[in-house]
Structure formats: C-alpha cells, structure tokens
Amino acid sequence: MHPAGSVIWFTTLSGAGYGLLFLLGLLAGTPLLPDSRWFAFATLALGLGLVTAGLVSSTLHLGHPERAWRAFSQWRSSWLSREGVLSVAGYFPAGVFGIAWVFFSHRLAWAGWLMAAFAPATVYSTAMIYASLKPVPRWYNPWVAPNYLLLALMTGSLLLRALVALFGLSPGALRMLSTAAILVAAGAKLAYWWHIGRAAPAATAESATGLGALGRVRLLEAPHTEENYLLKEMGYRIARKHATRLRGIAFLFAFVLPLLLTATAPLLSPALAAFAAVLAAASAMLGVLVERWLFFAEAKHSVILYYGASAV
C-alpha cells in the first residue's frame, strides 16, 4: 500500500494524542500527575492538538475535504465513519473535562473517564479501518488492533511522562507504566512482524485469476503500460532489504531508545531526566512514524496479483 504521508501522520499523531488523553482522563486526580491547571492545559492542548492535527491531516488526502462531514453518516457499517464520529464525539467530554479543570480548577472525574473511554475506542476504530480490509492480509489480522492501541498507549504515556517531568514530577509508577507500555508494545510489534512473516498467502495469482488448474500463473502484459491509480495507491513495493533496515530503525527509535531513556531516568538529575523524558517521547514518535510508514509500505493488496505478484 502506498505510504501516504497524510495517513501516516494522522495515525501516529492522533494515536499519541489519544494515548495521552486516555491516561490524563484516568490518572487525573491521582498523585501521579501534577495538580496544576497549567499542566492540565498543556496536556489537553497537546493531546487535543495532536488529535486535531491528525484529523486535519487525514482530510488532506480526501478528494473532497469540504464534504468530510458526510463521513459521520455511516457509523453503522463503516469503521472510518465510526472513527469520525468517535473522534468528534470525543471532543465533548474532553472539552467539558478541560474547561472544568483549566477554568474552574474542578476535575470532573466522569468527564475524565468518558474522555478516557473515547480515546481507545477511537484508536480502535482507526485500527479497524485497516484490520477489516480482507484484501490486505497484513492488515486483516488480529495483531493490528492491539498494535495500534499499544503504540497509542506507549506514545501517550511517554508524552505524559515528558509533560509531568517538565512540571517537575517524576513518579516511579508512571515510569513503570511507560516501561511496561514500551515492552508490551514492542512485543506486540514483534508479534505482528512475526505473524506477517509467516502467514500463509491469503490469495495468489492462481486464485485471483482462477487459472491455477492450468499451472503457475504469471503476468504477461498489464492492461496499460504506465502506472495507474491502482498501482500508485496499492501497488507500492518495498525491497526486503530496505524493509529490514527500516524495521531496525523503527524498533530502535520506537522502543529501544525510549526504553533506555526511561529506565535510566532515576540515575539522572531532574533536569536531565526531564530532558530524557522529552527525548524518549520524541524518539518514540519518530519510531512510530517509521513503523507506520512500514505498516503501509509492507502491506500488500490483492490487486497486485493482477499486476505480476504471485501471492499476498
């Protein structure tokens, strides 16, 4: 699948944003977070900012962004529609929660929980947009949704830790949470890669053409000599060597570096620790961007079976 910048940014940013909002909603009022309106403001601004930036960027690839509102109508069948509905609906509890806290210094727990509930639901919808697409076997599998959720949680937690650190706190529990999130997310990612590496082909040139009975099927000529929409959108090819290198980079930035930076925090001065927490978050975001790029680039759509691929 063509790794379109807009979707990669969208899923990465909004994932992190929802991770952050999720944790904020849950942990608000606990000693893990500073009890500060400014903290609340900064965290909500970042969380909602990321979510909004993601949403805006996702409309960039639309042919008709001005009609985007129409996307709310089909929530009964469409994960994309559900995602749209949830993402917009999620602004309400977040807004109520934020206004109450920032302006009235009042933490509305129910609003927080509601916000926390919307976040994973939204991320899950996003994930399910992909995970429900049968023609893309590397998406249509049970590992995609956990990956999206865990990566959102991980980036969210790292962002939260960075913010908390900037506000001078460094609760061990939060560190533990991040560490755990990193480990689980890394595991999930590895599991995903392991899965797509060994899954039997979901479809083949033989089944796509129905000509398998005659023998191995090979493309002789494509319908048109130049690339068309289908190939540009769904015919993206990435060399295995390139993919392996990028997986390494993604893994390093998304998991290894953040883990090191998080685990070593207790050894550092508070200022350095805060800096390390920011670095960890930034690294994770970068890593997830690469991971997301790969998520698209490595995914193969069954249409390529009609254009020379032998299996997907």
Partner: peptide, 26 residues
C-alpha cells in the same frame, strides 16, 4: 456524496474502483 477517501478502493480485492484524481471522487 463521495468525499474521495479511497477506502472503498482499498476494500475491493479486485481493483475495480477507479479514483478520478481530477474530480476527487471514486
């Protein structure tokens, strides 16, 4: 009604959907 999100073309295993980049619709 089409917003040109292209998702339907991803959902078609057979490559039967054609996005008109100029008009912005499927």
């Amino acid at each position: 009604l089409c917003i040109g999100c292209k998702l339907c073309s991803w959902a078609c295993p057979y490559g039967a959907r054609e996005f008109d980049e100029d008009v912005g619709v499927m």
